Computed example of a mutant assay.
Amino acid sequence: MSETLVAPVETKRRTASPMARLVSDWVPPAVTFVLVAVLWQLVALNNPYVLPTLDAIGNSLASDPRMYWANMLVTCQEIAIGAGAGILCGFLLAVLMSELPIVEKAVMPLIVVIMVTPVVAIAPALVVAFGFGMLPKYIVTGLVVFFPMLVNSLAGLRDVDQKALDVFKTLHASRWEVFRDLRFPGCMPFVFAGLRIAMPLAVVGAAVAEFVAAGQQAGLGSLVTISAAQANLPVTWASIALLCLLGVVLVSLLALLRKRVLWWSDADVIGR
């Protein structure tokens, strides 16, 4: 019954004009954002010591764009290096665990212990161990994205079509050939699911690293801390808005990349 109801809806959506699809996709979120902006402005006008008005935030961004740009570049550097290393290490360890189960039994308990330890508690110890440079911030950012990437990649590498695996065994395929031609392509939907979780967490991790890791006072997270201590609400919320924008850009780029890489997966879903 449900399939007979869903199919006409999907067919109608596919046959709708591009303008109709554009309206149906963008109008609801646009209306939501407009309502939130109006509500924000009303609260800010009546509570100037709680929230700055939207025009005050815009004026802060326009008055000193170099300051915001320089701090955003620092945060982007932390995301690129820290989150990039965390994502890569998570995937490589997942490959090792899928091929050698003994590694998972030996390492996974330690990883769980590290992941359940609050990163705020780890950051000061990292500063003591690695100094006041950027390395502790890279490590904090990498730790935040490591676990979701590891778990999703491991699930994907083990989610192998048993019939296809039997065919590979019949052809006497090597372990490398099975990984290259079966496990790796098959795990890509899970990898992108992990990346979809990791990308927003990377922004959060970079900001938290700048909050709690002493040292260089640079980055949007540091700008939020400093401006909040000075009760400079426009700068605080402008920095928060840029962090949100950075997360949206990363997620959007990931969605475009997924569409290019997993075109076959999307086509399979649409064709059902």
Rank of each mutant, 00 (worst) to 15 (best):
A213R: 03
C187Q: 01
G221F: 04
P189G: 12
A214C: 04
F211V: 14
F179N: 05
R183V: 00
V191E: 00
P200N: 14
P200I: 03
A209I: 11
V203S: 08
Q216C: 06
F211L: 15
V224L: 10
G205C: 07
A193N: 15
E210F: 05
P200D: 14
A207N: 07
V208Y: 03
P185R: 00
V191G: 07
V178Y: 02
A218Y: 04
V191K: 08
L220V: 07
G219M: 04
L201S: 03
A209E: 13
L195E: 02
F192L: 00
A202R: 08
A198G: 13
F184W: 15
R183F: 04
L182V: 02
F190H: 15
V203D: 03
P189K: 05
A198N: 11
V212E: 02
F190Y: 15
R183Y: 07
P189L: 11
V203W: 10
D181M: 06
P189C: 12
P200F: 10
R183H: 11
V191D: 01
F184K: 07
Q217N: 13
R196M: 12
R180D: 08
L201H: 02
A207R: 09
G205H: 00
F184V: 07
F211T: 13
A218L: 12
V208P: 09
Q216W: 07
F179I: 04
A207L: 11
G221P: 00
F179Y: 07
V212A: 13
A209H: 12
F190M: 12
G186T: 06
F192I: 01
G205Q: 02
G205P: 09
C187N: 00
R196P: 08
S222V: 04
M199H: 02
L223Q: 03
A207P: 05
A206D: 14
A193S: 15
V203Y: 12
A198V: 05
E210K: 05
R183E: 14
V191L: 02
F190R: 11
Q217V: 15
V178E: 11
E210H: 12
R196N: 14
L220R: 04
L182E: 03
A207C: 13
L182C: 07
L201I: 01
V204E: 14
M199K: 09
F190P: 00
V212P: 10
Q217A: 14
Q216H: 10
L182A: 08
G205M: 01
A207F: 00
E210D: 14
V191F: 03
C187K: 05
V204I: 15
S222C: 03
R196C: 01
F192S: 06
A213G: 11
Q217D: 12
A202K: 07
A218C: 06
G219W: 04
F192H: 07
L195D: 10
V204S: 13
A198R: 11
V224I: 11
I197K: 12
F190N: 15
C187D: 02
G221I: 07
E210T: 07
V208Q: 00
A213N: 11
M199N: 06
Q216Y: 09
G221D: 06
P189M: 10
G194K: 04
G205L: 00
L201P: 06
E210Y: 06
A193Y: 08
A214K: 15
P185A: 06
F190E: 13
Q216K: 13
A209N: 13
V178W: 01
M199E: 04
A206T: 14
A206N: 14
D181L: 09
G186P: 02
A207V: 15
A209K: 05
P189W: 03
L195S: 09
C187L: 06
D181V: 08
P200E: 14
C187H: 11
A206F: 14
